[in-house]
């Protein structure tokens, strides 16, 4: 959605990583794309585990009005606790160091994510694969720190099931809570399985950890940017065929989702 905020800054928040160089990449890509449109006076990124950190960002922003969009998948531990605490903001709109700060919804709960997940699942399949004999698994992190963390994924599974898409089944699975993605062979009984990581980046979890849990790698590999080959779908494992996509957050259209979350804020939360 095209909006014009010539006096406002946009701040995109990401997790980042001290171990994987690709974690912050999508946030910067989306930031550069949005900055090039000139819709905002300035566009910034800040991270939990990289620089600029959430604590370092305020002196960098000179505008008096700031829209913050968490480039996070779910409304949970990070978006409800860590981000507001570290940025010293509260509620939808705060005053911070003389700035009016608007805290938008995270990208992962945007309504277009359902279409993106379906698009990503179908685009990695080889021609001729029968969707009726295919199970789509949306995989997330899962954590015992906040029960809402899995809600975004459960909501997407329900939304995909409610469409006309003829997947044999659509289920959710997680790295750190049941149903575990490592059990994908027993969680599904279809000949073909597509796994789409509901993550922001092809980084530590989606590129390095989950492939080991799925059994398509025997040990944790180097980061995606350090390897020549991204993935070589499909993976034939016994009588099953597995397709594994890159993280949903790497889709270039996420830049539009970020801007959309600003529009949504103005329409629904702005007083």
């Amino acid at each position: 959605m095209a909006i014009s905020k010539p006096d406002s800054a946009l701040l995109i928040l990401g997790h980042g990583s001290t171990e994987n160089p690709d974690s912050s990449h999508p946030s910067w890509e989306h930031a550069d794309k949005i900055a090039a449109t000139g819709q905002f006076s300035s566009v910034h990124c800040a991270f939990w585990k990289e620089e600029p950190s959430f604590r370092q960002i305020w002196p960098m922003i000179e505008e008096k009005e700031v829209y913050i969009v968490p480039n996070f998948i779910s409304e949970g531990y990070f978006t409800r606790q860590v981000l507001p605490r570290e940025l010293e903001i509260k509620g939808h709109t705060s005053e911070r160091l003389g700035k009016k700060v608007h805290y938008c919804d995270p990208v992962g709960i945007h309504s277009t994510m359902t279409d993106l997940l379906i698009k990503r699942a179908k685009e990695i399949l080889d021609p001729g694969v029968n969707l009726n004999e295919t199970t789509l698994i949306i995989v997330g992190h899962g954590t015992n720190l906040n029960k809402k963390s899995v809600d975004a994924i459960k909501d997407q599974v329900a939304a995909i099931k409610a469409t006309d898409e003829p997947f044999g089944d659509v289920i959710d699975a997680y790295m750190e809570e049941a149903p575990f993605i490592a059990d994908w062979k027993t969680l599904t009984d279809s000949p073909t399985v597509i796994v789409v990581p509901f993550f922001i980046a092809d980084a530590l979890h989606s590129y390095q950890d989950i492939p080991v849990l799925l059994g398509i790698e025997t040990e944790i590999t180097e980061a995606a940017s350090q390897r020549d080959v991204f993935r070589q779908n499909p993976y034939h494992m016994g009588d099953r065929t597995l397709y594994y996509s890159s993280a949903i957050g790497t889709d270039p259209s996420l830049a539009e989702v970020i801007v959309d979350q600003v529009s949504y804020f103005d329409e629904h939360y702005r007083s």
Binding site: E51, P52, R55, Q56, I57, W58, P59, M60, L97
Partner: peptide
């Protein structure tokens, strides 16, 4: 400069102006 040293310049400026109190 921010691409190489994110926020480092702005941190100094805010500190020198007395707008940033170390934690």
């Amino acid at each position: 400069l921010d691409a190489v040293y994110p926020g480092l310049f702005a941190t100094w400026v805010a500190y020198d102006r007395g707008e940033l109190t170390p934690v």
